[in-house]
């Protein structure tokens, strides 16, 4: 009987791969909303992998930011676009060629880096705990952090100004 963390690892890894595949190549549906939901599942199972690595903060951020905020944005965009149009779209040779080049290029770099890495002797350390991150943000990087808060205010004002109805 393998340790329970290993079982979870294989479970989450398989789910990540399967759902990731379903996002781009779902045989049953070409509906973008289905793809988006599978992307949520991919992200959730990836955050499970982060939990297994003891990177709890990263796991939480993964769900909060990606599965929460970014996906809502995706769904909004999909709703605004014409879905029927997307379903009818044919594959283009050039764009799929470029896509394949990107995928295989990335895969080649990834495999090469796996091949050249020294695996033995590396002691696992846990970095980036929530406490350490919070201390960095409010101590060393306080000034940029505060400037970003002004920046977010500006972005908020901008969105409201540019999207509101014309007042008569």
């Amino acid at each position: 009987m393998p340790p329970i963390s290993d079982i979870f690892f294989y479970l989450f890894a398989a789910m990540t791969l399967f759902c990731g595949l379903m996002v781009v190549a779902n045989p049953l549906s070409r509906n973008p909303v289905t793809s988006a939901i599978f992307l949520v599942l991919t992200i959730v199972s990836m955050s499970g992998l982060f939990v297994l690595l003891h990177a709890f903060f990263l796991a939480a951020v993964q769900i909060l930011v990606y599965a929460g905020a970014v996906m809502v944005l995706f769904l909004f965009v999909i709703m605004l676009l014409d879905i029927k149009e997307e379903e009818r779209r044919k594959f283009k040779v050039i764009s799929s060629g470029i896509g394949a080049l990107a995928v295989f290029g990335t895969a080649a770099i990834f495999l090469k880096s796996i091949g050249t890495t020294q695996w033995k002797g590396a002691t696992p350390t846990i970095e980036g705990s929530t406490v350490a991150l919070g201390k960095l943000l409010f101590d060393k990087f306080l000034l940029p952090f505060e400037i970003v808060s002004v920046l977010l205010l500006v972005a908020m004002i901008g969105v409201i100004l540019l999207s509101r109805k014309e007042l008569k």
């Binding site: 990087f141 940029p144 400037i147 970003v148 920046l151 500006v154 972005a155 901008g158 540019l162 014309e166």
Partner: peptide
């Protein structure tokens, strides 16, 4: 005097200008 401050300041300028350039919406 630091890349983080430089980036935050630069973004504050740029994002503000995104809004300002398109201010005459009509």
């Amino acid at each position: 005097n630091d890349f983080t401050l430089m980036f935050a300041a630069l973004e504050l300028i740029t994002i503000t200008f995104y809004v300002l350039t398109s201010f005459q919406r009509n």
